[in-house]
Design a protein around this nucleic acid. Sequence first.
DNA 1: GGCCAGGTTCGCT
DNA 2: AGCGAACATGGC
Length: 318
Amino acid sequence: MDRSVVTIAPTPPYHFDLTSAYATNYPGHYGADINQEGLFPRLLDSRGHPHLVTVRALGRVVSPLLEVEIEKADTGLDDALISQAKRQVAWIFGTDQNLAPFYRMAMNDSVAGPLVRGLKGLHIPHTASVYEALVLAILGQQISSHVARVVRTLLIQTYGPSAEVSGVTYYAFPPPEAIVAAGMEGLRAIKFSARKAEYVVGIATRVASGKLDLEGLQHQSDEEVVRTLLGIRGVGLWTAQWLLIRALGRTDGFPHGDLALQRLLGLLMDKGAPFSPEEALEYSRRWSPFRSYVTTYLFAAARSGRFASLSRGGQVGP
DNA sequence: GGCCAGGTTCGCT
DNA sequence: AGCGAACATGGC
C-alpha cells in the first residue's frame, strides 16, 4: 500500500467543521461521505485507480490548514495522482473561495448580515463532478432529504467501486458505466422510480459514450450552463440552479423554485407565509452576485436550528 | 391511513 | 400559457 500526506492552506476565514458539515449534512457511515471523529475519509476513483483521501483540519478559522492523507490499496501512488487528489480535495471543500466580497455585501444588508453572524468561515462545498451532482439532484427531486439519503446510500454501496483500506471498505460514486450496467431494473431495485431511473440511465449512457460533456460546463457562462442543462430530460430550473451552486462553483445561483427556500425566506422576513417563487427571485436580486452564498448560509442556518419551526419539521403558516 | 416532501414531465384546457 | 396528475417511498 502506498501512502502520502499533503497540506492545503484554505483562504481565511475558513471554518472546516461548518463547511464539511454542509457537505455531508448528516452523521454516520453512509457511502461516500463519512465523518469519523473529525476525519473525513473519501474514496476517489480516478479511472479505475481508487484511492482514499482522509481530510482533517489543523489550525483555526483565521489561520486554517487542512491535512490530507492519501492512501492507495495497491501501489502506484505517483506525484500526478497526489496533486490531482489535492486539487480535488481543495475543490470539494471549497478552500479557494474568498468570502470577503460576500461579507462586505452582507454587512450592509439587514437580512444577509444576521445570517452571516455565527457562520463565519463557511465556504461552499462542491461535488466531485458535475455528473455526480446531476445524478444526486435528480435522485433528490421532490423526495424528503431522508429518503434521498437512503436511496443515495444504496446507489453508492450497490454500484459504486469499492476498496478496502486498513480493514475498512470504502465506496466511490458509481461512474456512468456502472449505472449503464445496472440499467433501469438495477435502479428500480434500489427504490428509484421508473421515471427517475429512466432519466439517470439516459444521462449515464450519454456521458459514458461522450455525447454529453457535463464537465465541460465548467467553461460555459451561467446562462449557457442553464440552457444546456434544461435540455436534459429530468432537469428543470431548480436542478440547474442547484448545480450552479454545488457543482460548478458559481457565486450567483439561486434555486427560487425550492420549497424549503421559499419557506425560509417567509420566516426570515416575518411574512407569515412562504414566498412565492416569483417573490423569492425578485427579492434575491439585492444579493446578486452572491446569491449562492446567501442560499448556502440560509440552509446552514436552518440546519443549525436557527429557524425553530423548521428544525421541528413543522409547517410554516399563520 | 392520508398527506406531503429541498421537482419534472406529460397531457389537458 | 397555465393547471393537475403521476411518479415511489418514508416519516409524521
